[in-house]
Nucleic acid binder design. Structure first.
Length: 651
DNA sequence: CTAGGGTTAG
């Protein structure tokens, strides 16, 4: 206290500057400003006004920055620079550039400190013509030899997608200049990785005079983006140092490539290495748990987040909503959602999608209405989520209405995903002709996924002619994809056209197309147990099979009849009766029954759609075992309780 | 002036 009293108010310019730099609130800053004005001390001092402006930007008060600028009767170059930087830092590229123009047209020409932020703003506005003009202006002012300016130029071109221009900037940089500018190397390296040219990036990486963590991070990201997991992991393991970005890159990359188990493991390893995650690392880890349906891991990450002061907001909040909903805990998702203070369009999408996959269409619609009341502007993703709610509950008219309002009222251009949703919506409801007509009227060529949606609808509603058409297109679009063959073969089997089914099977074997195996997994006390169809590799295999047999016997007493048609769909299994009993979800269920306490809920995650037979067995099992069974298939959730399923047998 | 980042159809 004493010390402050003695030095206050400062009696030198330097004293004021350090006071300004240490200010921790806007209020404090304004008091200092008032003092400067009142004491008529240094009020026209360039360093003091510049420092005031920079500090107001640091404290995120752009209005105050602007008024400081306007108050200045004769703005100095450094005040201009500080303002342009402040505006650029706060994503106000248009304002930044208009002040840059003001400076440019005054007698004060922008210097090496103003250009970089103007270039960044031009990139943010994605205005190529502006970018080229700025480049020319920098050359004319002979500033393009400055390393700060050159790096910004290259970065601007990368962000605008003009990789060639960025490479030109790089190539035309004198060697002596390049040697000491890691940042320029990194910018180009990153540009190459973003463009998918990892080979060239690697070459550049190998000859770099000096590398920073960012160089490694870029290359790791490039490899992950390409799906080259092994190479990425190898590079990552060989890094001389890793920071939070490195770890986040790995968690996200592994998860996006389907290796969620390893993604969560990476997150744990990061913590073991004493690196503190940020909100995005936490969100990425939660996302990996969500994709796996691993509730126990998800809960652990949630605990970490709470213990480390991450608010249930923004990316973390959204990821939590998504994690709980994809792990079967829709009520928990809803609780987190209600607790959140700010919800953006992604948060609403995650919540609506949650209600949709759990079959609560009313909740999904209500949520959509609430979102509009909260004045959050719907985007294409939200419509996808609401459409999904319609698909999973057979609300055909409502879905078509939504689709039209999206296009005509909200002026949102539908994507292939939306078209697929509509075809799925019509198809599932048995309105196949309409679905096909809809496809013909689409402005774009249907893709593999869309034909797949039509095909499954044909199978459910046993329309062989249309199914053949769909199958032809599936095979045309992806000859190597096993799905097309499996679909086709299944269809012939269902129609008892054994010869045709056999023909397809032979073609499949000739071209050595593999079928992706079905698996299910269940988490029991922090351990995950994965089962394949007909799996006998589990140490408790005998017990599991016995428990399953017993269950089937008791289920039959309750009127359960094995549905052999499902077996026919499993073209690789020769022995019908056996295979029916060995679907992976049944094994997971039996294991769940013997390894959890009576009455405890059983959560199973499956990578394919649940078959009709397993679905009926699950229903009966929930009744005779008095358990809630929560099954996530690759589309949605089935909550089995007292003999009924939440999907209402519509899936 | 550099690296990573939450939701989304079959």
């Amino acid at each position: 206290m004493n010390r402050i009293a003695r030095d206050f108010p400062p009696n030198s310019e330097a004293g004021f500057i350090s006071l300004i730099q240490s200010s921790q609130s806007l209020h404090h800053l304004k008091q200092i400003h008032a003092l400067v004005l009142r004491l008529h001390l240094f009020f026209s001092s360039i360093p003091i006004s510049t420092q005031l402006l920079s500090s107001s930007s640091r404290l995120h008060s752009i209005p105050f920055s602007l008024s400081l600028f306007r108050l200045s009767p004769c703005p100095s170059p450094s005040l201009f620079n500080a303002l342009i930087r402040a505006l650029s830092d706060h994503s106000l590229p248009f304002l930044a550039l208009s002040h840059f123009a003001l400076m440019f047209n005054s007698s004060l020409r922008p210097g090496r400190l103003a250009f970089p932020f103007a270039l960044k703003s031009a990139a943010a506005l994605s205005q190529p013509s502006l970018a080229f003009s700025l480049h020319a202006a920098a050359s004319k002012a002979s500033l393009d030899l400055d390393s700060f300016v050159r790096t910004s130029l290259a970065d601007m071109y990368v962000k605008l997608g003009f990789l060639d221009c960025a490479l030109n900037v790089f190539d035309e940089t004198p060697a002596w200049h390049l040697a000491g500018n890691v940042l320029l190397w990194n910018v180009v390296l990153n540009g190459l990785c973003r463009d998918g040219d990892v080979e060239r990036a690697r070459e550049l990486f190998d000859v770099m005079p000096e590398r920073s963590v960012a160089s490694w991070n870029s290359l790791v990201h490039g490899l992950l983006k390409r799906g080259d997991l092994d190479a990425a992991v190898e590079l990552f393991e060989g890094m001389p140092e890793r920071n939070v970005v490195s770890w986040t890159t790995m968690v996200v990359g592994l998860s996006r490539n389907g290796d969620n188990q390893r993604a969560v493991w990476m997150f744990d390893r990061m913590l073991e290495n004493g690196v503190r995650g940020n909100e995005f690392t936490v969100a990425a880890a939660l996302s990996a748990c969500a994709r796996m349906g691993a509730l126990e891991s998800g809960l652990r990450v949630h605990e970490y987040a709470l213990a480390n002061g991450f608010r249930e907001n923004g990316a973390v909040g959204t990821a939590l909503v998504d994690m709980y909903s994809k792990c079967g805990k829709i009520e928990c998702a809803s609780e987190v959602f209600d607790r959140m203070e700010r919800r953006d369009v992604l948060t609403w999408t995650a919540m609506i999608m949650g209600w949709a996959i759990h079959g609560h269409w009313r909740k999904a619609f209500q949520c959509f209405e609430d979102m509009k009341c909260a004045r959050v502007k719907p985007d294409d993703g939200v419509f996808l989520a609401v459409l999904m709610a319609c698909v999973h509950s057979g609300k055909v008219e409502k879905g078509l209405e939504l689709f039209d309002s999206m296009r005509f009222y909200y002026q949102i251009e539908p994507t292939m995903k939306h078209y697929t949703c509509i075809v799925d919506l019509l198809g599932r409801a048995g309105r196949l002709e309409e679905a096909l007509e809809f496809m013909k009227a689409m402005p774009v060529e249907p893709d593999f996924v869309l034909w797949g949606a039509l095909f499954s609808a044909c199978r459910v509603h046993k329309n062989i002619e249309m199914a053949e058409l769909a199958a032809e297109n599936l095979l045309r679009l992806k000859p190597s994809h096993s799905g097309g063959y499996v679909f086709l073969s299944n269809m012939y089997s269902s129609a008892r056209r054994w010869d045709d089914a056999e023909k397809v099977r032979t073609t499949m074997k000739d071209q050595s197309v593999g079928k992706s195996p079905g698996w299910s997994y269940i988490e029991v006390r922090g351990q995950t147990h994965c089962f394949y169809a007909g799996d006998q590799s589990h140490p408790q295999s005998n017990e599991i099979h016995n428990r399953l047999e017993e269950l089937v016997l008791r289920a039959k007493e309750q009127g359960y009849e094995p549905d052999t048609e499902c077996v026919l769909h499993d073209i690789e299994d020769e022995d019908k009766e056996d295979s029916l009993e060995c679907h992976s979800e049944k094994l997971a269920l039996a294991f769940g029954l013997i390894s959890t306490a009576n009455g405890e809920e059983i959560r199973i995650v499956k990578n394919l759609r649940v078959c009709g037979d397993c679905h009926s067995l699950m229903k009966v099992a929930s009744l005779i075992c008095g358990r809630e069974i929560i099954l996530r298939d690759n589309k949605r959730f089935h909550h089995f309780n007292s003999g009924v399923c939440s999907c209402g047998d519509y899936w």
